[in-house]
């Protein structure tokens, strides 16, 4: 085999590897070795330009010291309670727990709201109106305000039990109230995406409304809305940082405490990196689901 043939073979392999593996649009599109060389070169040039701007800017040294000081980054990541600051890494665990609890509650509450809004019977009229007001209200009010009102207002009521919970619990309540409004609209879009003939098919078999919903409509609706749902959950993951304003020691608040103790912002860089480590896998997973769904629709599969 001559060099030339070997080259062509490798190029074809690359094109196959990147271009036509059938998962929808890819970062690297096909086109063989030439395209790979060009994309690599262009990436290097862009990165080098950005690095140069950052490095040779007049205030570069100061910025690097304030935001990217390796020692401060490490200190804030591990924390030191005796010096008055907490570990950002450990505080992230609170974000994760708040996210997981809120996620489950949001999925349940949003479904109830969506079903109330979708109901047609006259008996349900007051619930329909309530659900509409709920969604309008919590979609219109900034999340930060909801966090403040719940986190500071409810304790001030001095009710037994209800007013003596931790900041994290109030924070989760605020997140659930606000996100349920958004997610209920996602559910509603999903319910509407299931064709009316499926309802007729189920009801004509003598299935009750509830049974038809449970076994026929909802499974199809949920399948259609998994990508937008995951999208909302990506933003929920970082919005758990807002609960810090109530004094809960989550990652962002821990970073804040570090920076005001040591007067260095590198702790925020650490928090940002940690949030990225959480959100990027979910984002890539969502992309994969969307691509798979697209492929399935193109293949003329599920309606």
């Amino acid at each position: 085999m001559t060099d030339d043939q070997g080259g062509v073979g490798a190029g074809a392999q690359l094109a196959g590897g990147f271009g036509s593996s059938g998962r929808g649009p890819r970062l690297l599109s096909g086109g063989g070795r030439r395209a790979t060389v060009i994309s690599t070169a262009s990436t290097l040039v862009v990165l080098a330009a950005l690095a140069a701007i950052f490095w040779f800017a007049p205030g570069s040294a100061a910025v690097r010291h304030t935001f990217f000081n390796p020692q401060d980054m490490w200190q804030s990541f591990v924390g030191n309670p005796r010096k008055g600051y907490y570990s950002v890494g450990e505080a992230l665990w609170l974000n994760i727990r708040m996210f997981l609890v809120a996620e489950v509650l949001i999925l349940a509450l949003a479904l109830v709201i969506a079903l109330a809004r979708q109901s047609t019977s006259p008996v349900m009229f007051p619930f329909r109106v309530l659900a509409m007001i709920y969604v309008d209200f919590f979609r219109g009010v900034p999340l930060l305000l909801v966090v403040f009102v719940i986190g500071l207002g409810v304790p001030a009521l001095r009710l037994p039990f209800v007013s003596s919970q931790s900041a994290a619990i109030y924070g989760v309540c605020a997140l659930v109230l606000s996100y349920s409004a958004y997610v209920s609209e996602v559910y509603r879009a999903g319910l509407n995406s299931v064709h009316q003939s499926q309802v007729a098919g189920a009801r004509s078999l003598g299935l009750s409304h509830a049974t038809a919903l449970r076994y026929v409509i909802l499974p199809q609706a949920v399948r259609n809305i998994i990508p937008p749902l995951l999208n909302d959950f990506i933003s929920l993951q970082k919005d758990t940082a807002l609960v810090g304003v109530l004094g809960a020691i989550e990652a962002n608040e821990a970073a804040q405490i570090y920076s005001s103790t040591v007067f260095n912002f590198s702790s925020f860089t650490v928090a940002a990196i940690l949030f990225l480590i959480l959100t990027i896998p979910l984002a890539r997973f969502t992309d994969r689901l969307v691509a798979r769904d697209r492929a399935r629709r193109l293949a003329g599969g599920l309606r």
Partner: peptide, 9 residues
């Protein structure tokens, strides 16, 4: 029905 209306899932 004309359109079958089987449950696709």
């Amino acid at each position: 029905f004309q359109s079958f209306n089987l449950f696709p899932h």
